[in-house]
Amino acid sequence: MTKPEPQDDDHWLVINGRRWRRTDPALSDDLVEALKSHLGRGRSAVGVSRRAGDDVATAAARKRVGLAKHGLGERGPRWWDSEVEDRIARAREALAELEKLD
């Protein structure tokens, strides 16, 4: 008996059989854009620091990625289990933390 393939829905995106949590749809476009900007910079910094063998910089970059993904609702508590106001507050808090890192 084969396992059924995971399906896309409002909560999950399936790519090559792997489920990825979708960005919280309650977040405003400008908030998502700001968080994704930090996410992109963090991912880039992870690659640069890993190639340089700088473990401290890699850890800092991964922290940025984690904060951004938590703010977007892609990690941490499932966004669909929380009230919209709490989800937006969590995203704004993550963005404030990210901006402190700059």
Rank of each mutant, 00 (worst) to 15 (best):
R21G: 02
R64A: 13
E5C: 05
G42W: 06
W12K: 00
R22A: 09
I88C: 06
E5K: 08
D8F: 13
G47P: 00
A34S: 15
R43V: 06
G73Y: 07
H38M: 05
A91K: 02
W79K: 02
D54S: 07
L98Y: 06
W79A: 07
L13F: 13
L35M: 12
T2Q: 12
V46Q: 01
H70C: 10
R19M: 15
A91C: 08
A60T: 12
H70A: 15
A68V: 02
A52N: 12
E74N: 01
D102E: 13
A96V: 12
D102W: 07
R43K: 03
G71F: 03
E74C: 09
E74M: 13
L39V: 01
E74K: 09
E33M: 12
K3P: 03
S28H: 00
K100M: 06
V48A: 05
R41K: 05
A45D: 14
E85N: 11
E83S: 05
D9W: 10
R51E: 09
R62Q: 12
T58H: 05
E83D: 15
D81P: 00
A91P: 08
A89N: 08
G40K: 04
W79F: 15
W12G: 00
D29H: 09
A94D: 04
L31E: 10
A68W: 05
L98W: 10
V46C: 06
S28L: 02
A89D: 14
M1Y: 13
T2K: 10
G66V: 03
M1A: 11
A89Q: 13
V65C: 13
A57V: 05
H70E: 15
V32F: 04
L101K: 01
G76T: 01
L39D: 10
G42L: 04
L101H: 01
R43I: 04
G42E: 03
L101F: 06
R19N: 09
E85M: 10
A26C: 05
E93I: 07
T58V: 09
K63Q: 14
E83Y: 07
S49K: 00
G76K: 00
E99S: 09
D30R: 04
W12D: 06
M1C: 06
D8K: 01
L39C: 03
R22F: 11
P4V: 10
R87T: 02
A91H: 02
A89K: 13
D9C: 13
L72W: 04
W12F: 15
R18A: 10
V65N: 05
L95Q: 05
A57C: 08
A68I: 00
A94V: 01
D54W: 06
R51W: 03
T2E: 14
D86P: 00
A94N: 04
N16G: 09
P25Y: 08
R87A: 07
R92N: 04
A60S: 12
D9G: 07
R62V: 04
G53H: 11
L31T: 10
M1G: 14
T58F: 06
L101S: 05
R43S: 10
D9N: 15
T23E: 15
